[in-house]
Design a protein around this nucleic acid. Structure first.
Length: 563
DNA sequence: GGGCGAACTTAGTATTGGAATG
DNA sequence: CATTCCAATACTAAGTTCGCCC
């Protein structure tokens, strides 16, 4: 049998109404003998007919002709958004021109038309974003393709500081390529600046981790483009952080004994250092660097506490030597706490406050640099922030051991985990403003619980009836019905329990943010080991992003891990 | 030794997208 | 199928630490 193979044929369409005369057409593979293709000439109506329903025995054509590709708008014609030109992908631009062509038509005044258009156009824009993220969102470092955390240059706008920030509302300028320093390796393809622009500098510094940087104009601070937490570089650093905290675990008793002794030191500086360290250890306060007045919001940490931030109460509701803290910490989050302290600490605080104004520094002989130098002598790599990491992680481990009940369901175990997590968040003072929808969402879940309780009552009744029915009939069918109703009841009980656990969790979480401690302070190996030990799927504790960040821990940890 | 810049971690909130719901 | 709701993600500000320079 003869086959006509695929061939590329140039056909002149000059007789047709086409602008392009030379089109390239691929003919299809055809399996019929060439002789059969065109057999007849003459009067079609005299040919024989096929049997019922059969319309033809041979059919051949070249397939439909497609619409020509979109021709982009010429230079100088731009799409404008909010008054300024905006670059669109070809696909998004094409769809925008469809609409533009119809601007004069009354269609474009109709809500349905506009909404439908926008809905579909948005999808095009989304695809465009994906393509951009694929190109700019990744880098290659030492043979690994790594995600970049913040590959987008921050857009211009009005500066939004937190709390009572003296620079709030100032204009944050647009960053141009001419402001940006690129960092990469000498033998790599150096990124191209946008057309008609150049970089401020291209640097080849492999002693730093950033890929690009620029100086922001409101505070004059450097901003960096860095890798995602899932990267090898960040993951190893994170691991190292927790290893330092674990070394502190072995030294903590000695360190605590020493600062107890130092409370009685003859030197005022040593006493202040010892009391400050006590606060950092016991209350998980931050170090507290000095800040330039008038440049930032007035917030403090341990070393920068002022006399006005604490009150001393000899007796507070029966408790002796109570220190009342009230100050704004990082992000202007209020720290309020009443803490009973050792007599010697109380005495020292009184001494530190003698003859001082409220706005004077509490620890006037101490700063973070002195404190960290001292800590470095106590243990290599020890700084003030290690205490937060250590105390957070050890608290999680202790709380999990205390709260986990082997008899409980998975849902209840997860509640226990969240409660352990919450104990840490409270220690670290990780707060959030309750969501605007909080009250409503609590009501919703209560309503769900009530509905589920009613369902439960019905299911119980049904089961009882089925049992009675079975007693009378004693047949297979009624027996199956009892089993069915039993299962249903069980399922509803489980659902109710889940809802109640969820409600409790949400209520206890009203003003507490768990995310920060989970992400930055809790050794993930504690969590992975706990999940393995109690057969809680890791997905129930860590979402996708968190699993990527903690891939190293998930990979290396077995159920026997101890912080 | 302290002032300062650089580099990096930690932080809360605004926005988004997908699941749940009516 | 549209709307509601919430978890996940995006965003970028605000800390800590370190090392250099005077």
């Amino acid at each position: 049998m003869f086959r006509c193979v695929a061939a590329v044929t140039k056909i002149a369409f000059s007789n047709l109404n086409f602008k392009h005369s030379n089109l390239i057409v691929r003919t299809l593979r055809c399996t019929f003998p060439i002789a059969q293709r065109v057999r007849f000439a003459g009067k079609r109506w005299e040919e024989e007919h096929y049997e019922d329903g059969v319309k033809w025995m041979f059919l051949e054509h070249s397939g439909p002709l497609f619409a020509p590709e979109y021709e982009p708008l010429p230079d100088g014609i731009d799409f404008y958004y909010d008054g300024s030109p905006m670059k669109l992908s070809l696909a998004a631009e094409e769809v925008a021109t469809f609409y533009a062509k119809m601007l004069d038509h009354e269609y474009t005044t109709k809500d349905v038309f506009r909404q439908n258009f926008f809905h579909d156009w948005k999808k095009k824009l989304k695809v465009e974003q994906d393509v951009i993220a694929e190109i700019h969102g990744y880098c290659v470092m030492d043979g690994h393709r790594e995600k970049i955390a913040n590959f987008k240059i921050e857009p211009p706008g009005l500066f939004r500081g937190r709390g009572d920030h003296p620079k709030m509302g100032k204009l944050k300028k647009r960053i141009m390529p001419e402001d940006v320093i690129i960092n990469c390796s000498r033998d790599s393809n150096i990124p191209e600046p946008p057309k008609n622009h150049h970089w401020k500098e291209v640097r080849f510094d492999n002693k730093v981790t950033w890929l690009a940087s620029w100086t922001e104009n409101v505070q004059g601070l450097l901003k960096y483009v860095m890798l995602n937490p899932s990267s090898k570089l960040k993951g190893e650093k994170d691991w190292q952080k927790y290893e330092i905290a674990r070394r502190l675990k072995d030294k903590i008793d000695a360190i605590r004994s020493q600062y107890h002794r130092d409370w009685k030191s003859r030197e005022m500086k040593t006493r202040q250092r010892a009391v400050a360290l006590y606060f950092i250890d016991k209350l998980a306060l931050r170090a507290g660097n000095e800040k330039e007045e008038g440049e930032t919001a007035d917030t403090v940490g341990c070393c920068s506490l002022r006399v006005e931030h604490i009150k001393l109460n000899e007796n507070d509701n029966g408790q002796q030597c109570v220190v009342e803290f009230d100050f704004l910490g990082k992000d202007s989050i209020r720290y309020y706490n009443k803490v009973p302290v050792e007599k010697q600490v109380f005495k020292n605080l009184k001494l530190f406050m003698e003859n001082k104004d409220p706005t004077d520094d509490l620890f006037d002989r101490l700063n973070t640099s002195d404190l960290n130098k001292h800590l470095q002598e106590l243990m290599e790599g020890l700084t003030a922030k290690v205490f937060r990491t250590y105390n957070a992680s050890i608290t999680l481990q202790e709380q999990l051991a205390e709260l986990t009940d082997p008899e409980e369901s998975i849902a209840e175990k997860i509640l226990s985990y969240n409660r352990a997590n919450r104990a840490v968040a409270i220690l670290c003072n990780h707060q959030r403003t309750p969501p605007k929808t909080y009250e409503k969402s609590m009501k919703n879940i209560q309503a769900k619980i009530e509905a589920k309780k009613e369902q439960l009552a019905v299911a119980k009744k049904d089961l009882k009836n089925a049992k009675v029915d079975h007693k009378v009939k004693k047949d297979e069918k009624s027996k199956q019905m009892v089993e069915k109703k039993k299962k249903l009841l069980q399922r509803i009980e489980e659902q109710l329990m889940k809802l109640e656990v969820q409600a409790t969790d949400r209520e206890e979480n009203k003003q507490i943010a768990l995310g920060t401690s989970k992400l930055n302070y809790l050794d993930p190996r504690i969590t992975v080991a706990w999940c393995k030990k109690w057969h809680v799927p890791i997905e129930k504790i860590y979402n996708k992003t968190q699993r990527e960040k903690f891939a190293w821990a998930i990979d290396m940890t077995d159920e026997n891990f101890e912080f």
